[in-house]
C-alpha cells in the first residue's frame, strides 16, 4: 500500500487561499490510512472551519474516486463533479495528484497529503512500515525475503556494516511532528543481521556469504516507463 500522511492545515490553506469553491477528492485505492469519501467529507468541513476562523470564505464539496491513479476512472468519475469548482484538493498519493493534473490540465490541483512510502501495515499497533523502494531489481529471493535496499539504512548489498551492534542499526526510526521535528526515536533491527539469522535458519548461509556486485542503478533511474500494459 502507498502510505501518506496529512499535510498541516496551514499549508493547505495557503494553497487554497486564491479559491472560493474547492472539491476535496478522496481515493479508495491503496492509500493508507484510508482517504475515501468519509475522510474527504471531514477534510471539507475542517477546511471550511479553519478558513472561517481566518476570516476567509471557502466552500468545499467532497467526492472520491475508486483509484485516482487510473486515468480512465479519474476522468469518468470526477468530470461530472467539477462544475463550479475553482480548485481540487486531492487526498490521494502523489501519483493520484499527478494523474489528475494530466487528465484535467485546466483545473488547479493541490496535494492534501505527503506521500511517504510503499509500506506494510501492522494492525495491532497501528504502525506502517516502509517495505519497498520499487527499485526495479528485486533480490528478495537471495536475502531471505528481507529487503536490504529498503530495510538497511544504507541500502547495502554486502552488510552488515560496522554500525550494527547487538543486532541493532546505528540509525533509529525517527518519528516527526507536523513541523518535521524529531519527537521520538525508536530502535530498529539491522536488516543484514535479520538476513543472516533468517538464512542461517533456512540453512542457506551460502546466500549470505555470497559477494554481491554493485547494483546497476540505471535500472531504477527515474522517471521510468513500462510499455505494452
Amino acid at each position: 500500500m502507498i502510505v501518506t500522511k496529512e499535510k498541516p492545515v496551514e499549508e493547505i490553506l495557503e494553497y487554497l487561499a486564491p479559491y472560493k469553491n474547492v472539491l476535496v477528492l478522496g481515493c479508495d485505492g491503496c492509500t493508507q490510512p484510508p482517504r475515501g469519501l468519509k475522510q474527504a467529507k471531514m477534510y471539507a468541513m475542517l477546511i471550511e472551519m479553519a478558513a472561517k476562523l481566518r476570516h476567509k470564505d471557502i466552500k468545499c464539496r467532497a467526492a472520491t474516486v475508486a483509484m485516482q491513479c487510473d486515468n480512465y476512472l479519474c476522468s469518468s468519475t470526477v468530470h461530472p463533479q467539477l462544475e463550479g469548482v475553482d480548485a481540487v484538493l486531492s487526498l490521494a498519493c502523489g501519483i493520484g495528484v499527478q494523474t489528475f493534473a494530466e487528465v484535467f490540465p485546466d483545473v488547479p490541483v493541490y496535494p492534501g497529503q505527503d506521500t511517504v512510502f510503499a509500506g506494510s501495515q501492522e494492525r495491532e499497533n497501528g504502525k506502517l512500515y516502509e517495505r519497498c523502494k520499487a527499485c526495479g531489481d528485486c533480490l528478495l529471493g537471495e536475502t531471505g525475503g528481507i529487503c536490504p535496499v529498503t530495510a538497511c539504512a544504507k541500502g547495502l548489498m554486502n552488510g552488515p556494516c560496522g554500525g550494527c551492534v547487538e543486532g541493532k542499526c546505528e540509525v533509529p526510526y525517527e518519528i516527526r511532528d507536523e513541523k518535521g521535528e524529531v519527537i521520538k526515536m525508536i530502535e530498529r533491527d539491522c536488516a543484514w543481521y535479520r538476513i543472516y539469522e533468517r538464512l542461517k535458519k533456512l540453512g542457506r548461509l551460502d546466500l549470505y556469504r555470497k559477494y554481491r556486485s554493485p547494483r546497476d542503478r540505471a535500472v531504477s533511474a527515474w522517471p521510468r516507463l513500462l510499455e505494452g500494459v
Partner: peptide, 8 residues
Amino acid sequence: VFDLDGTQ
C-alpha cells in the same frame, strides 16, 4: 550515497 558498499 552508498552507491557502493565497502566490499564493492
